[in-house]
Nucleic acid binder design. Structure first.
Lengths: 251, 251
DNA sequence: CGAGGTCTTGAAGACGATCAACAAACGTGG
DNA sequence: CCACGTTTGTTGATCGTCTTCAAGACCTCG
């Protein structure tokens, strides 16, 4: 399967990985061609299906094409915590390319597709283009910044603020990949899954959603989440998008 | 100031950064020499002093030589959350080398020293040795794995378990850099700071410490933390060190 | 039409926060 | 070496947030 066959949701038909990388730095035509020509293998997943299983030693890494997925860590007694939430364009498991094994599962949240490429091919790619190593590293650092911010949310914010913050973050991340529609976006996530993101019980998650509704900040029906009052929501969440590093830096 | 002047706590007198990197992969003699010859600048800090300030755009990055430091995110109302805890050998702000700005402060927890090196020098280093880029990236991925695990702890574990887990993690991390003494280690952290790591109030942190003492799992006096019952502590915390990636992987 | 998932509500209780006060340890200067 | 102020650790009491348990409403899909 050739790279040009890799579908993408964006109008321009540009490869999602190229879009992701060009958010960080310009690519040369050779680099772009090399990425497109990687032996991509596209796979589809249903909700709850695993893209990568905990304690596996995968030989491929993957990039989200569409839909949503999550990195889940679960404990002996069945408690689940989502540590990362992946949307279209996100590189899912760069870490297992580097670290050779994975200490989490990656599970589909909605129906989704991902493009898989072998570690061998990635190794060959970065050996040929050291500049791309640098870019992959940058992506990892941005992911880490998002993780640090989640630690802050979980440690020091109450349920409603966490939820508000999650919606703010989602909105901005989906906006950068062109998946918002006006002030809203498709959010195919049920409340049990949402509670695993927020570190809350299902019941309390539900009540927090209702509070945001009651305050007139959001509406959410039929998987369409509308942010009715962005300023109010961002203020409640004390949302400061700096940690997403969306504004490009000279390098 | 030349690299050979960089002091280190380890008996062999090996540069802490070289130790850190060789935990991940073998270095060539040239690489080792190049790292030692970087223009290191050593600075000392008192507790509460900032190594790097929030929203700065630093031109240097640093490696911990001794003592402890933390990455702190704080909110408008003064709530503080520590997102990363640094011990000797840790590379503190690789991320600001890559991302060009920093969205946290890095604050000394105890008296500590760090070796600073300019971004220019680091850039020259990785351009000469692309292999080192790969290693720095690996370090970032390990840091991210630790962050993900903290997210799980904060989201799904109660106070006592979190504290137990923190002590287990500390013990293993300090052991790899030769800073344990038998079953104990020097832990110059006060309870207010500890509560900022755990996302708890000071009072509740105190009660959790007392519970671990009462269960006979630890003693802690005069900054010396002794793990009296490792198995019991690890079992309580459900501690599984896989996420620290301490066992080397072939690459 | 029935079945299973999802959302919602109520009530009770646990966990952790907050407030307030005191004890102990530490560092400093006299 | 002691006196004193400051930081750190400890305790009790009360309050609020969030969890748990249980049950019912709603929705979707075969």
């Amino acid at each position: 399967m050739r790279g040009s066959a890799l579908p993408s949701e964006n109008a321009a038909g540009i490869h999602p990985l190229i879009l992701l990388l060009e958010r960080r730095d310009r690519l040369s035509p050779e680099e772009r061609r090399a990425i497109e020509n990687l032996p991509w293998r596209i796979r589809s997943f249903d909700p709850e299906e695993d893209l990568v299983r905990q304690k596996d030693r995968p030989t491929e890494s993957c990039v989200m094409i569409d839909g949503f997925a999550s990195r889940v860590k679960s404990s002996a007694d069945g408690a689940r915590q989502i540590t990362t939430f992946y949307v279209a364009g996100d590189f899912v498991d760069l870490n297992c390319f580097v670290l050779k094994r994975i200490d989490h599962s990656v599970t589909a949240v909605s129906r989704c597709r991902a493009g898989f490429v072998s570690h061998e091919a990635l190794t060959a790619l970065i050996e040929r283009f050291p500049h791309l190593t640098r870019l992959f590293w940058t992506i990892t650092e941005v992911d880490a910044a998002i993780l640090r911010n989640w630690i802050f949310q979980l440690g020091r914010r109450n349920a409603v603020q966490r939820l508000a913050h999650l919606f703010c973050e989602m909105s901005r991340r989906l906006e950068t990949v062109g998946l918002t529609r006006g002030t809203g976006f498709v959010f195919p996530v049920n409340q049990p899954t949402l509670s695993d993101m927020l570190g809350l019980s299902i019941v309390h998650t539900n009540r927090s959603v209702q509070e945001l509704r009651a305050r007139g900040l959001i509406t959410w029906q039929r998987q369409l989440l509308e942010i009715g009052d962005w300023r109010g929501l961002a203020q409640l969440a004390e949302f400061d998008p700096d940690y997403l590093y969306l504004t490009p830096e000279p390098r």
